[in-house]
Design a protein around this nucleic acid. Sequence first.
DNA 1: CGTTTGCTTGAATTCTGTCAAAGCAGGTGG
DNA 2: CCACCTGCTTTGACAGAATTCAAGCAAACG
Lengths: 191, 191
Amino acid sequence: MELLLKYFELKSGIDLTGADKELIAQRFKLKRLKKKQYLLQEGDICKYISFIVKGAARSYSVDERGIEHILYLGIEGWWMGDNESFTLHTASRYNIDMLEDTELLIITQDHLKELIEKLPAVASTMATINNNRVIAAEKRIHAALSQTPEQRFDVLSNDYPDLLKRFPLTMIASYIGISTKTLGRIRNGGK
Amino acid sequence: MELLLKYFELKSGIDLTGADKELIAQRFKLKRLKKKQYLLQEGDICKYISFIVKGAARSYSVDERGIEHILYLGIEGWWMGDNESFTLHTASRYNIDMLEDTELLIITQDHLKELIEKLPAVASTMATINNNRVIAAEKRIHAALSQTPEQRFDVLSNDYPDLLKRFPLTMIASYIGISTKTLGRIRNGGK
DNA sequence: CGTTTGCTTGAATTCTGTCAAAGCAGGTGG
DNA sequence: CCACCTGCTTTGACAGAATTCAAGCAAACG
């Protein structure tokens, strides 16, 4: 919980009082999941948005041929969830499972709204996060539409070297939308 | 300006007073651009975010081979701008030009912040828009990574039939990240 | 009426994915 | 300490798909 409190203070630039911290601690719940366990499954409604305290997770969809496509990879300090399902209460197209034993702090939409209304630090943080999400998503769209697989891999290597160290290449390939075969070709000097 | 005021009321569910409307009208400026004129050029800092009152625009990047890749297409009631450049004051990778004679309502970041602080209707609208942007962007990432060109085209046809009527197929193809050749194959029954 | 813009098509090329197999850890249990 | 998994990575041959380039047309526009 300490990590999350510091996160809000850091992102918002606003100090939290003891009472603020207590309220946050009451609204978020700790959830422990082991490797391969699911936080969300396709068809479910995403009731919680989750802050990763420790561990790693991914969200992915499965197409009609059974192939998995990774939408997000997350590690400590990142959020996981299906924004669409969480916001609109629609059935999710995604699965979220753990890639390591993981500790999450989860919160419902109602409680999150409450925190946003009562705590400027949370409101500011969430507004900033949303804006950053848009920027990151637009970069990723731009990459997917106008860059070659090799360029996308290079950009990922530069922007998120942590992901490369932490996740198998099969998942990195899926994340940037290419086959492991193509990724192999790229990594071994483009032959 | 009427369209924008109604837009804020509709999106936020909050009625604006006469004074509110006046403040908004003072902060947004009307800009008219003819077809092919630029609102933003690569390398510039995006100083304004724009609400399209009438007309149509696109944002696109140009790769090293001179090929244009469309990131967004916009028509009446949509916003245009480069979020990254607008937020972080960095040089933009994108160009925005008009596809028809267009009327825009433009606002600077400072003025937008002012309106958000003073007017709950604007604050609520902008928060909602940002959330919708994230959802739309994630859908598009999902489409780019895990759907075939044909599926992407079908989804676009269903979700945004207006775009198909309004923009040439070359731009639609660029928007979904395929060549005009491939789009032709798709449209003519997959031969 | 000439020019521009957009749409379509054919043939060759390049790229990427598929499938199956083999090698290489790292961890587990005997 | 060793043998055996299991999961991850890489590779080769092949098939499939998309792009490139060029050309021909139709429609819209001034």
